[in-house]
Amino acid sequence: MRQLCKGNVALVKGAILAGCRGYYGYPITPASEIAEAAALYFPQIGGTFLQAESETAAINMVYGAAATGLRVMSGSSGPGLSLMQEGISYLAGAELPCVIVDVMRGGPGLGNIAPEQSDYFAMVKGGGHGNYRNLVLAPSSVQEMADLTILAFELADKYRNPAVILADGFVGQMMEPLDLEYREILQPEKPWAVKGTHETRGNLISSIFLESDGLEEHQRNMEAKYRRAQEAEPRYESCHIEDAEILLVGYGIVARILHSTVEALRKQGVKAGLFRPITLWPYPSKALVEAAANVEKVLVVELSNGQMVEDVRLALDGTVPVEFYGRGGGNVPSVKELQEQVLSQMAVRV
């Protein structure tokens, strides 16, 4: 059944379908519709919505609710995510599953509210303290705002780890048709949860390991699960890579623009291909290496000054020249602009 929906609202609908019944958040543009939709929907279906006094409080509420085994989430944008980083580190350290949404806007500091992709480092590489990873998914359509949120809850539970939806102002704000199907919610047992019952009485949720060996063992166990995720979870999308001479790489809204760019270039006779990571962590490095095996050049496009490009370079490890084109401050490149970029890159053949 198709319905028109804003990306931010679709995300909340996906969360509800995934069985999420707790939302704790604080308003911020361009993510406020997430809190507004949760405020409207959750209390009607036996869930909890609470507007916290800050993002700091919100993420620690998520920590508390997650400790009870509930599927729970929060959403914000850059400045709010900066405040949440402490809590995300605790969630990862205590191995609590939850979903956190970052509808990226311009930064640093107050920046502006226009779309950017400049929180890649903060959400993909960490941001909080200590040895941990976030599972990071990057939707590029309204439909994916719902679908990847459902997946994010499943992955979070599977790996007992925070999962992040890394969206941008455009994907959050735009409206598209959304196809939702009601489905049975399959949630894993959580014998570790603290529920205030006889059965869970001995359970402890904590991230403190005072002995060096104990903490190191904990870190190694976490690392082992991260390696399992790296094997099993990378997701991506590609098109026109079979005969591509130049491979365009981008995620989120940029991948949409790159898709149009590749189609336009193909009409001009330029053999361009597209590689779009859907999981930013674990990064689909193997698939990228295969996609780039026969290209002359890779062009990474981001709404940042170059963040994901580092993962592309790490994956390709010098085998192919990797160029970068970025826009910032809320400026989003047009298809024409990117066509020109590709043509100028192709003119400088290696």
């Binding site: 916290a52 700091t56 409080a57 920590y63 508390g64 809590g87 949720i205 904590s206 991230s207």
Partner: peptide, 15 residues
Amino acid sequence: DVGNVQVAHGRAPAS
């Protein structure tokens, strides 16, 4: 000997 949740500095009332 009850259910225990250890939380971040200052955030216990939120959790």
